[in-house]
Design a protein around this nucleic acid. Structure first.
Length: 556
RNA sequence: GUCCCAGUAGCUCAGCUGGAUAGAGCAACAGCCUUCUAAGCUGUGGGUCGCAGGUUCGAAUCCUGCCUGGGACGCCA
């Protein structure tokens, strides 16, 4: 399946064999053989620094070592065309290009599955992301987290991990009581009654809307009701409304969760008290100043944390510990949390909790998503012009479309802040990388359509060895990297590599397109081979875009 | 004061489990449409990789200190 990786593996083995044959080092002395893909084509397809690494062990000059390795190397086995020694002792390998020809049928046969590998070995990974409190709209920062989390999951899945996407619903605790109080105030206000918003109330227009809806639907039915009953109803009503809106926004943004986990279920099933007991049994709990504390400093946190406040209620951390205990009890090999930058300070205490619960610290991982800055006409937008509040995902989707939002949000590494340029995202020009990539896909589709019209039937045989032009080789090599790129992105949790790859591939396609003509009636054999190449490129671009969650249009 | 992230071309960013001449896009400049979509291509110029030490045959990459920007340091969530 992954031809490039196979070649690389064989080559590594052959190098190791050559080192032993040349008596340069014993088998156990050989360092990990690293083959890198040189940036400069003149340095071959693979380069090895093994000679420099062996300099100390073999007590010889790197270039001499390199020379001896090359002499002992069985070039036929490793499908090597040419070997050069360069610089301080690099060995540059030029692979035979014929194997690239196999790539096209491989890609065509795999189709949508091209890019899949089993590097993840079915490792069970849970990714929890977004998890916004159901008390308001999804904003810019949440949107970036949503895009990052979703694409990360796509990448993990494609690389052979067993992924579950989860959203943790904070449907218990203070913020929800506050929601109920806010709804109550807005309801009463809608009926022209005097009612003040709670101190930490939610002032969004959506809550006003809920109040009005309730007033319309129920009139003054709830005014004279027992307050407890009234609030209980408003709480559920508000929760359903807000959660419904979040679910709709995410669905429209192309993010689908496998599981929506309710915080309440933790209480219902006594998970919180169980978690507390686990910590207590471990001896990590003590009482002080009328509160119950978790000795998180045992695991490197800079201070201990309160679990049960003086007033007897839990802090935010307590149910969260129970939640993570539950996650890990579900048998995941790793749980990844995607958090906003403002939560980074929370990591040490959570990691401490994981360990206090008896789990290894590296089962728990947090990806921090740095801030998003919105720009328009060169100016930083602090707030939405429409609502005067933080810019909502909904607003952004309507403004520039889902494709652009998703693409831009995963272009940058998660730990770099991101400048989102509205003008650029909106622009239908070559400045806009989303269009650039989509255009490459559409271009191919047009060619393929015309190929059929010109009588180059789809099923015809072709000879891939005719693809010898530089731009063709470049394209083939890039196509071959696709599965490895995904595996790499999955391992390093760097979904932005996909955006980069797809851009580079599109760039090679455009370059090829301008240099060579695909449909040439005068040269049907070459045309058939090129059509096959175009099909392979199209599949790969489409698969890449799908990972990002961006559409691959056939016409633009 | 402590912790996290960032500092790479005029701008926005890749590269960071050490490797050869540090890359891309945009912006600037010069070219390419009787030929499959010019939403494209080709070329040129542009860099003390924040600063100072250290480790190494070799540092943008690892270590230490400092500077700048952003964020976090609640018995809030």
């Amino acid at each position: 399946m992954n031809i490039l990786a196979q070649t690389e593996e064989t080559l590594k083995q052959e190098i190791a064999a050559a080192v032993i044959n040349a008596n340069l080092a014993a088998e156990e002395e050989i360092p990990d053989i690293i083959l890198e893909k040189p940036k400069d084509k003149a340095h071959g397809d693979f380069a090895s620094n093994i000679a420099m690494q062996l300099a100390r062990i073999a007590k010889k000059a790197p270039r001499q070592i390199a020379d001896e390795i090359v002499k002992s190397l069985d070039q036929s086995k490793a499908s090597i065309d040419k070997v050069e020694i360069a610089g301080p002792g690099f060995i540059n390998f030029f692979t035979k290009n014929d194997f690239l020809g196999e790539l096209i049928p491989t890609i065509m046969t795999a189709g949508e599955a091209y890019g899949k590998t089993n590097t993840g070995n079915g490792e069970k990974i849970q990714v929890e992301f977004v998890s916004v409190n159901p008390t308001g709209d999804l904003h810019l920062g949440h949107a970036r987290g949503a895009a990052f989390g979703d694409v990360l999951c796509n990448v993990l899945d494609t690389a052979g991990y067993d992924v579950e996407r989860e959203y943790y619903i904070n449907d218990a605790g203070n913020q929800i009581d506050n929601l109920a109080l806010s709804v109550e105030a807005r309801y009463l206000q809608a009926l022209n009654k005097d009612a003040a918003m709670p101190e930490d109330g939610y002032h969004g227009s959506d809550i006003i809307e809920i109040g009005k809806t309730l007033a319309l639907e129920y009139g003054d039915k709830w005014v004279n009701m027992e307050r407890e009953e009234r609030l209980a109803f408003f709480k559920e009503y508000g929760l359903d409304f807000e959660l419904g809106k979040i679910k709709k926004d995410l669905a429209d943004f192309g993010v689908a969760f496998d599981s929506w986990f309710s915080e309440r279920s933790l209480y219902k099933e006594d998970k919180v008290t169980n978690a507390l007991k686990t910590l207590e049994d471990g001896g990590y709990i003590y009482e002080k100043d009328g509160a119950t504390w978790f000795r998180s400093t045992d695991f490197g946190d800079d201070k201990d944390r309160v679990l049960i406040k003086q007033d007897g209620t839990y802090t935010y951390l307590t149910p969260d510990i129970a939640y993570h205990q539950n996650k890990l009890e579900r048998g995941f090999d790793k749980v990844i949390n995607v958090w906003g930058a403002d939560h980074h300070g929370y990591i040490p205490r959570m990691r401490a909790a994981i360990q206090a619960l008896g789990y290894s610290r590296d089962k728990f991982e947090v990806k921090i998503i740095q801030m998003v800055n919105l720009f328009e006409n060169g100016e930083k937008l602090r707030m939405s012009k429409r609502t005067g509040k933080a810019v909502a995902l909904r607003e952004l989707m309507e403004e520039v479309g889902v494709d652009a939002v998703r693409y831009f949000f995963v272009t940058r590494s998660n730990d770099s802040q991101l400048d989102f340029d509205l003008n650029l995202a909106r622009s239908q020009s070559n400045d806009n990388p989303v269009f650039y990539v989509q255009y490459a896909h559409a271009r191919i589709c047009t060619m393929l359509k015309q190929a059929v019209e010109k009588g180059f039937a789809a099923e015809e045989k072709y000879d891939a060895s005719l693809l010898t032009a530089e731009k063709e080789i470049d394209l083939l090599k890039k196509l071959g990297e696709f599965p490895q790129m995904i595996a790499d992105a999955a391992e390093k949790h760097t979904p932005h590599k996909v955006t980069q790859y797809v851009f580079d591939l599109a760039s090679l396609l455009h370059s090829f397109y301008n240099a060579e003509k695909v449909l040439d009636q005068g040269n049907p054999e070459l045309t058939k081979a090129r059509i096959a190449l175009m099909k392979a490129v199209r599949i790969t671009i489409a698969n890449g875009l799908k990972l990002i969650g961006v559409t691959a249009p056939e016409k633009m």
